[in-house]
């Protein structure tokens, strides 16, 4: 059985989808990722789909599910590296990818997630200050 590896990098989880997903593999990824977020307490999930040539409504739903479930577990999801042809197709298909953030590439996606964490850290630091006074 194929499995898509989930890597932990600092506060984030990273997944690079290198194959065209069949349905079972996509469903397994969804379950594994949500498990991993819960287990590691990750604050962000980065999914690289630069090697994925087809995103249909099923795959789109899985991506939306991952983002939604992770959000409930306090982690943000960023999808990176979407091929231009896939973006054109998704819009014409009418798939909104609601609640899913996107970035051009892994680097920009990381920056986006790091900014979010920073904001959270600063807020927490601020809260600590106020309790001291």
């Amino acid at each position: 059985m194929d499995k898509i590896p989930i890597l932990k990098i600092g506060h984030f989880l990273m997944v690079a989808i290198q194959v065209d997903l069949y349905d079972r593999l996509a469903l397994n990824l969804e379950a594994d990722l949500v498990q991993a977020v819960s287990k590691t307490g990750a604050k962000g999930v980065l999914i690289d789909i630069s090697s994925v040539s087809i995103v249909d409504s099923f795959m789109g739903r899985i991506l939306g599910n991952i983002a939604g479930m992770s959000k409930v577990l306090d982690a943000d999801t960023v999808i990176v590296g979407m091929q231009p042809a896939v973006a054109i197709t998704l819009v014409e298909l009418g798939l909104p990818l609601r609640g899913v953030q996107t970035a051009l590439n892994v680097e920009k996606g990381m920056e986006l997630l790091q900014k979010k964490i920073k904001i959270i850290d600063e807020e927490e630091a601020f809260d600590d200050d106020s309790t001291l006074q």
């Binding site: 040539s53 087809i54 995103v55 249909d56 409504s57 099923f58 091929q83 231009p84 042809a85 896939v86 054109i88 197709t89 014409e92 298909l93």
Partner: peptide, 17 residues
């Protein structure tokens, strides 16, 4: 072309599903 390929394969994917 790649864009039309992607559109066709995505449509076919929806219908076969």
């Amino acid at each position: 072309g790649l864009v039309n390929q992607t559109k066709l394969i995505t449509a076919a994917s929806e219908l076969s599903r």
